[in-house]
Write a protein that binds this DNA or RNA. Structure first.
Length: 496
RNA sequence: GGUCUUGUAGCCGAGUGGCUAGGCAAAGCUCUGCAAAAGCUUCUACACCGGUUCGAAUCCGGUCGAGACCUCCA
């Protein structure tokens, strides 16, 4: 079995990955709150963990991949009234809460498909697991780590910290947290400011509400992940992923809740992706730089110079390691677009190459190629270093191009090396990184039409009628079709 | 203010103490009727100041800048 190393946020270092029940692996990723349209910020975690899922699968693990949908309302931030977020917005839009949730869930799923993310194996919703959440809260109360006030239930952090390490994941110190000076809504009900809600009493105007032993209300934010992860992955599971912003309080609270209920910490490896910035600034409403996925793919945002294909965005995200911050700019995306095209051009050439069975050359180039290919696995094993994998594929591109135009001698390459190179592109570019060519598979009609134009241009060139031949070339490039005169005199085209 | 992360050539970004990724852009050359595409070549950077070391982008300390979180915001 492979030696995969994963950076564990809990220990702040890379650890060898050993599943609890190999070959089975449990993977939980915090999904979106579907009270609004998915934006660029959502792209990173889901692409990051899609690659994690793909790679684990390729290593031979049988992965249960759970990614929830938060469709029960939560609160607005400080200074605002405690109004159910989903309920409030649905009032403005005159929609039923579940209608709103459905609309944004659909948009989210559409975005995930555009990014070529594989569906999780289970996608549970918070509203579908109210019963499980209530059961969990009951146990926490029974064990004495939660208390009820006016129909709301709070987790007693101070008591928990007496026998557990609260703050270990996020590096918080309880004493510091207790001294926090911010005054927030509902503080008076809590014994300590650090306590967090497990269940909230619903005021009459709340539309989303469920019956519970403590009256009508709705679940606290953190309990849903604990309940759903526990239900589908067990009391202790392998990997929990999410954005760095969720470290505290969300994941810290998850650990606390699950530890009380199950008597042990729920997660072996915590993985957190870093955040996205836009032209050096964090994404936020006040900066007016929140780019929705629909805007990103259509170019319909003031900050965007053009539309960016989902695959370009995916490629760009994967050229940076998932734990590093990632800045979006037009320049960076355009450069990614060109780079990715170069890679896929090489991939296409490679696919068409024939492997000659007899060649057993041991020319130095074979060793070179072999290293580039085999290193890819090593890079992925080192905490999913997709950036390095991509760099190695770029190293192979000029070799492939060289083979095509005769710069690199075909005879120098052994059949097994060529096959290895084919497998490497297929495995990493397509399977693991989950990328696919932008252009649609060219249909035969288009192919035939272009062949007519190519022939006409050839005839013109023979007659030295360069005005005509150049016109054909120029008109096509305007339409986004690039003719390429190959070294052997043939002509191919690519759709830009 | 506290905790954590981070600062690499024009831009984006890998970098495990010594062998100095990669992409985009730029320049030159080859190829071409001219181009495009492709190939070859060039462009040696690590915020700043100290320290450890034979040797530091990499370790330690400080300064400055950036980002995340600091309680119901995914």
């Amino acid at each position: 079995m492979s030696e995969l190393f994963i950076y564990n946020s809990l220990s702040r270092q890379k650890e060898k990955f050993t599943p609890i029940n190999a070959p089975h692996v449990g993977l939980y990723v915090c999904g979106p709150t579907v009270s609004g349209e998915s934006h660029l910020g959502h792209a990173r975690p889901y692409i990051t963990f899609d690659v994690v899922y793909r790679y684990l699968t390729q290593l031979g693990y049988k992965v249960r991949y759970v990614r929830n949908i938060t469709d029960a309302g939560h609160f607005e931030e400080e200074g605002r009234e405690a109004v159910d977020k989903i309920a409030e917005k649905s009032f403005l839009e005159k929609l039923e809460p579940m209608e709103l949730v459905q609309k944004y869930s659909n948009l989210y799923h559409w975005g995930m498909k555009e990014f070529n993310n594989i569906d999780p194996t289970i996608e549970p919703t918070a509203t579908g697991h109210i019963v499980e959440q209530i059961e969990m809260i009951k146990i926490i109360i029974e064990k004495g780590y939660a208390y009820e006030v006016n129909g709301s239930v709070y987790f007693d952090v101070k008591k928990y910290a007496e026998s557990h390490e609260y703050g270990k994941l996020s590096g918080r110190i309880l004493e510091d947290l207790l001294e926090t000076t911010r005054d927030l809504e509902g503080q008076d009900e809590k014994r300590n400011k650090v306590d967090f809600a497990l269940w909230k009493h619903a005021a009459p105007e709340h539309i989303m509400r469920w019956a519970s032993p403590w009256g009508e209300g709705f679940p606290g934010w953190h309990i849903e992940c604990s309940a759903m992860a526990c239900k589908y992955l067990g009391n202790e599971f392998d990997i929990h992923g999410g954005g760095m912003d969720l470290l505290f309080p969300h994941h810290e609270s998850e650990i606390a809740q699950s530890s009380v209920v199950n008597g042990k910490a729920p997660v072996r490896y915590w993985m957190h992706n870093n955040m996205i910035t836009i032209e050096g600034r964090k994404m936020g409403k006040s900066y007016n730089n929140v780019i929705k996925l629909t805007e990103l793919f259509s170019g319909g945002h003031p900050m965007l110079q053009q539309a960016y294909h989902p695959m370009v965005v995916r490629f760009y995200i994967l050229t940076t390691h998932y734990r590093s911050p990632l800045d979006f700019s037009n320049e960076a995306l355009q450069s990614a677009e060109k780079g990715m095209k170069r890679l896929f051009d090489a991939y296409e050439i490679l696919q068409k190459m024939e492997v000659s069975k007899h060649n057993e050359s041991d020319h130095a180039i074979n060793k070179e190629i072999e290293k580039f290919c085999l290193d890819c696995k090593e890079f992925m094993d080192d905490d999913f270093s997709t950036a390095k994998v991509i760099a190695n594929l770029f190293e192979l591109a000029p070799i492939i191009n060289g083979l095509k135009d005769g710069h690199v001698k075909t005879n120098d390459m052994s059949a097994s090396t060529l096959q290895l190179m084919k497998d490497t592109f297929e495995n990493y570019l397509i399977q693991v990184l989950g990328l696919k060519p932008i252009q649609e598979v060219s249909n035969s009609k288009l192919d035939e039409v272009l062949q007519v134009l190519i022939d006409l241009r050839k005839e013109a060139k023979v007659k030295k009628d360069f005005a005509t031949s150049d016109k054909i070339r120029d008109v096509l490039i305007e339409k986004g079709i690039q003719l390429k005169d190959e070294k052997d005199g043939s002509v191919s085209y690519s759709i830009l």
